[in-house]
């Protein structure tokens, strides 16, 4: 594996072997000294051209637990505000000795361009509304650890799918791992073209919810225009929110995932968000292990 850019072309055995490694790294993170020397001397740069705290922290934690060094970069107050191009920024960071760049950018495809320009390994940390592959891997790991595997599971991805790179990554990875995925959203929040996606859709959450093993809630992304495509937040809650009433309609063993940060009272009720079957904090913990698996896969081999 050279780069991790998308889940779209990822095969089942590749995904599963990353998840297996992540299981091993969860054990490392649970030790009295949660750190191994595996990537000593390697440098991981986090190039986040969009604001992000949790994903960046998760990657930095993962790099440090593998004994890699980290360089971090944020666009405000940096050379980007002085007009430096993406290419020049990337080559500058590479010249400082980075071996791998985690790239988050609002422009779809930016990490692919970076991978063309640079000799570094590249991990897509989120490009526009396109892909966020490590999020999908950590979600798959969370489901696998909680329910034993994804084969035959019914997973509903609910909400703001149109503007969600998380949904686009999960739409491909979950079916690759054997799950049956239904997108549940108002038609205005579905992507214009889902031809070729291995998923079904529905706009009726109440009709679907009783058959789901996993409820995957997306954040209503007001900053990306999400709020302008339905009449009001309260109508959204009424039709698509995971209220206590709907939580009661779930199968007993069904679990709830959310990529965070949650809008309590919008896509998820306050009480449901604190229920032990809501695995948000497991997702966060598993995210560090998955990112360790990705960094180790990309930097732990020959010519890494």
């Amino acid at each position: 594996m050279q780069h991790l850019l998308s889940t779209e072309q990822m095969g089942r055995s590749e995904a599963e072997s990353l998840l297996d490694d992540a299981d091993g790294f969860l054990e490392v993170l649970d030790r009295p000294i949660p750190k191994v020397p595996a990537l000593r001397g390697r440098t991981v740069a986090t190039l986040f051209f969009e604001p992000s705290t949790r994903t960046r922290m998760s990657f930095e934690r993962a790099a440090k637990a593998l004994s890699a060094d980290t360089l971090s970069f944020s666009p405000s107050g940096s050379s980007v505000s002085k007009g430096e191009s993406l290419k020049d920024t990337v080559l500058t960071v590479q010249a400082m000795g980075a071996d791998l760049a985690v790239v988050r950018h609002k422009a779809v495809g930016a990490p692919w361009r970076v991978a063309e320009w640079a000799q570094m390994r590249v991990v897509n940390g989120g490009d526009g509304a396109h892909q966020h592959p490590t999020q999908a891997l950590l979600d798959a790991l969370t489901i696998r650890r909680s329910l034993g595997g994804l084969d035959g599971l019914r997973i509903g991805i609910i909400g703001d799918i149109r503007y969600s790179r998380v949904a686009r990554s999960n739409c491909f990875l979950f079916p690759t791992l054997g799950a049956d995925v239904t997108l549940i959203a108002p038609p205005t929040l579905l992507p214009v073209d889902t031809e070729g996606w291995p998923v079904r859709h529905s706009s009726d959450l109440d009709a679907e919810i009783g058959s789901l093993d996993v409820v995957y809630l997306l954040r209503v992304q007001t900053e990306r225009g999400g709020a302008s495509v339905f009449p009001s937040l309260s109508e959204y809650v009424r039709r698509y929110g995971l209220t206590q009433r709907r939580f009661g309609m779930l199968k007993d063993e069904a679990v709830v995932l959310h990529p965070g940060p949650m809008n309590r009272g919008v896509e998820v009720s306050d009480v449901v968000a604190d229920d032990p079957r809501c695995l948000v904090l497991d997702q966060v913990a598993n995210g560090v292990a998955v990112r360790m698996a990705v960094l180790f896969r990309l930097l732990g081999g020959t010519s890494g």
């Binding site: 091993g24 790294f25 595996a38 990537l39 896969r297 081999g301």
Partner: peptide
């Protein structure tokens, strides 16, 4: 590390 293909990570138990 880096001289061979990336090994799989086992679990210490």
């Amino acid at each position: 590390v880096g001289r061979n293909p990336t090994p799989n990570v086992g679990s210490t138990e």
